[in-house]
């Protein structure tokens, strides 16, 4: 099962995306990613994009493409924001004081996903995540 969802980049846009993905996950019998982990991933990715990419201020839309099997989930988040490779940020060694200011979203994404990748193509940021339940 696969699909694409385009949505306005705005505060709370993660809620609608999550509802759609959870419905697809339920229909597919997805076991590769627990619902609460999927929720965490969607919230962390889209909150970061809305806050920091600059695309929300320009009234732009984001896209999530998914391919889903019971034992595998592939997500591709795309946005037309400023170039930003979140995987280039090293959040593993932040101090407790630094964690008071944030910077844990990417750490969570890296820990929960089986594979992560980033590409800048056609003026868009593309964050690629794969979940295999391993």
């Amino acid at each position: 099962m696969e699909g694409t969802l385009e949505f306005p980049l705005e505060h709370d846009c993660h809620q609608g995306v999550l509802e759609r993905l959870l419905a697809q996950a339920n229909a597919t019998g997805l076991s590769a990613c627990a619902p609460e982990d999927l929720r965490l991933i969607v919230e962390e990715v889209l909150t970061n994009v809305v806050k920091y990419s600059g695309a929300a201020e320009r009234g732009a839309s984001g896209t999530v493409r998914w391919r889903m099997w019971p034992d595998r989930l592939e997500l591709a988040f795309e946005d037309p924001g400023d170039p930003f490779d979140p995987l280039g940020e090293d959040e593993d060694d932040l101090s407790d004081d630094e964690r008071c200011e944030g910077g844990m979203g990417i750490l969570l994404i890296r820990a929960l996903a089986s594979e992560v990748g980033y590409r800048r193509e056609d003026g868009r940021n593309r964050l690629l995540l794969t979940f295999t339940g391993v």
Partner: peptide
């Protein structure tokens, strides 16, 4: 508490820092 995201974790670290 059924769910926590990085926004909630920031609060936890703020409380931890405060007590320290």
């Amino acid at each position: 508490l059924d769910y926590i995201s990085s926004a909630g974790l920031r609060c936890v670290f703020q409380m931890k820092k405060l007590m320290k």
